[in-house]
Amino acid sequence: MRAQPLHKRFFEKGTPYLYILPFFVSFAVFGLYPLLYSLQLSFSEFKFGKPLVWVGLKNFDTILSDPLFWLSLRNVIILWVGSLSVQLVVAFLLAWLLNPLASRLRGFFSGVFYLPVVMNLVAIALAFQFMFDKNFGVINLTLNLFGIESIPWLTTSQWAPISTIILIIWKGLGWYVVYILAALQSVDTTLYEAAKIDGANTLQQMIHVTLPSIRPILLFLIVLGTVAGLQIFTEPYLLFSGSSTTLGGPESSVLTPVMYIYVQGFQYLKFGPGSAIAVLLGVLIAVFSAVQFRLLQQR
């Protein structure tokens, strides 16, 4: 316990509340109120200029019997697991390789990996769309040079999720590298020396010293990566903008729940069913985060 510092007795009682007030006002107006209103909307029928009509579980019934909703859930799980798992493993290996480098070199490489994180996604996605083009894209043209046949990156439901995952990995990798690198730097080096004396090789050191030491940051990255991963929207939306006639890529293979909220809400103006998806997604994210916290805090 810290002793009560001297200066604290001087402060007026109301001051700290005044300082935290902006957050709570802003959260109430733009966070909590929309959330509660969303809950109400999900049980109602909405028409502009008319009062809400209570319709019970009708919106949930509509959504839960909609095959596109289930497809969007399946898609987002593929995109989330496919991208997050690769990002964590690759970022860990990259950070492991960068860690012993001289600080200037390390800074340079983490800068290079971080560049896509700060780049505007609209520009990035259009560049990828351009590169993934089946007939004229630079990726297929390069594959052709080596005698490999063109891959229909953006036009078939088999390849569409893969191209989207590639874009997501490329865009987000640097964020994971920077966090894991920071964690690696704070690992107590005497632990490695002790492990060496005990005869542990590099792999054993990685498994028994490094991974346990950075577990908190990995937990943090997995939870945030999951919260973000279940809300994937911009990458598939932009990658297939203009090139696909169906909703959410070929055969809707990259339609995600957030994209479906957007479509229901702002293209069909069906605010009730749209809010029902939002509520279901919110519950799903809460459950996933809680489960991950439990699983990773044990052991």
């Binding site: 107006v29 733009f30 929309p34 209103y37 969303s38 929207f233 809400g265 605010f271 939002a278 997604l281």
Partner: peptide, 15 residues
């Protein structure tokens, strides 16, 4: 921070 922003976009739009 765990609240998905997208969950509130429809009501925020009306607001």
């Amino acid at each position: 921070q765990l609240i998905p922003p997208a969950a509130g976009f429809i009501p925020l739009f009306i607001e």
